[in-house]
């Protein structure tokens, strides 16, 4: 290499001899160009390249988890909603038996999250079902029934339907639409609101029907954070083994998601109570309950 360079330099001059007579002021230690193959250099550079690549892969995973799964889930949610609308158009009878894993059977609205917040609730809480939308715990009650209608939803990616359920305030409406009915659930008083509820927030117009529950429901509040192993939050009486007779059971709705966000250390739980039922009028298919307009 060095020799070739030298000839090339000399050839460019008018007098080739002069180049040799006048010494270069700065003697070149090594010819420029690609350095000689040094195994250490190669190894270090390859190691660096691998690290940069792994960093990019991690970044790509964030994009996948936070955006790409949303896109996939939005498609699945749309399909489930279309399938549910078709089913509602065909059958007028409301029933929840014979639902398969991942089948949509109700729609939920949280007006406080905006008019565009609505999800089709599917049966089951497997990973595949929850990719479609909020999933119903199969052994819990169905909308409108007494007991505890419990639904799990993702908080990160996959449409993140329950991303903000920590922001549900007491008395905020969770409206559930089924084939024949609109059921209005409202979040129960939070732990620190229970004292003085009847004379305080409980007097507000939208809190009509929401009271501090008594009896076996004494400890049930609007929002709790529990360890992931605590399955009692979706029991008929949350947090208790007591199962009152059907006539004495309240009609509750429970939402579960992970907490804190991006972690599975705990579970965030929201409890709501059924306050109103609107029967659908087949003559007015476009009617929606007034609670849906409670957009903050």
């Amino acid at each position: 290499m060095g020799t070739v360079e030298h000839i090339g330099r000399g050839a460019g001059r008018i007098s080739g001899d002069l180049g040799d007579l006048i010494p270069s002021p700065r003697p070149r230690a090594r010819a420029p160009g690609p350095p000689p193959k040094d195994p250490v250099r190669t190894a270090v550079r390859t190691f660096g390249e691998v690290l940069i690549t792994l960093g990019l892969v991690v970044l790509l995973f964030v994009v996948y988890e936070v955006y790409w799964t949303d896109v996939i889930s939005a498609g699945k949610q749309k399909d489930a909603t279309t399938a549910l609308d078709d089913r509602w158009n065909q059958e007028r009878e409301e029933h929840f038996d014979g639902l398969g894993e991942g089948d949509g059977f109700a729609k939920m609205y949280i007006p406080a999250f905006g008019a565009d917040y609505h999800f089709t609730i599917v049966e089951g809480t497997t990973g595949a079902s929850l990719e479609i939308g909020p999933g119903h715990y199969t052994h819990t009650a169905y909308p409108g029934q007494t007991g505890n209608f419990s639904v799990a939803g993702h908080r990160v990616g996959k449409g993140a339907p329950f991303n903000d359920i920590n922001l549900i305030n007491s008395c905020d409406a969770v409206v559930v639409e089924t084939a024949d009915n609109w059921f209005v659930y409202r979040a129960l008083p939070k732990g620190d609101e229970k004292a003085g509820w009847a004379d305080g927030k409980g007097k507000e117009a939208q809190c009509k029907g929401v009271s501090v529950l008594g009896g076996p429901y004494e400890n049930v509040v609007g929002q709790t954070i529990v360890p992931p192993t605590d399955g009692s939050v979706i029991a008929p009486v949350p947090g208790s083994d007591v199962v009152p007779s059907a006539g004495e059971q309240a009609a509750l709705m429970t939402l579960t998601t992970c907490h804190p966000r991006f972690s599975d250390k705990e579970r965030l739980i929201v409890h709501a109570v059924l306050v109103k039922q609107w029967q659908k009028d087949p003559g007015k298919p476009d009617w929606t309950p007034p609670e849906l307009k409670e957009t903050a």
Binding site: V57, L60, F61, Y64, E65, W68, T69, T125, G127, L130, G135, Y137, T138, H139, T140, A152, G153, H154, R155, V156, G157, K158, F162, V226, P228, T229, D230, G231, V233, I234, T256, T257, C258, R261, F262, S263, D264, K265, R267, I269
Partner: peptide
Amino acid sequence: VVALLMFVVFPWAEPLLPFNNVTTPQ
């Protein structure tokens, strides 16, 4: 490589990570 990661590797790796556990035992 991006397609391989997005459609094969990440869907496989995802259940091993913590933030998808949103349920409690039934």
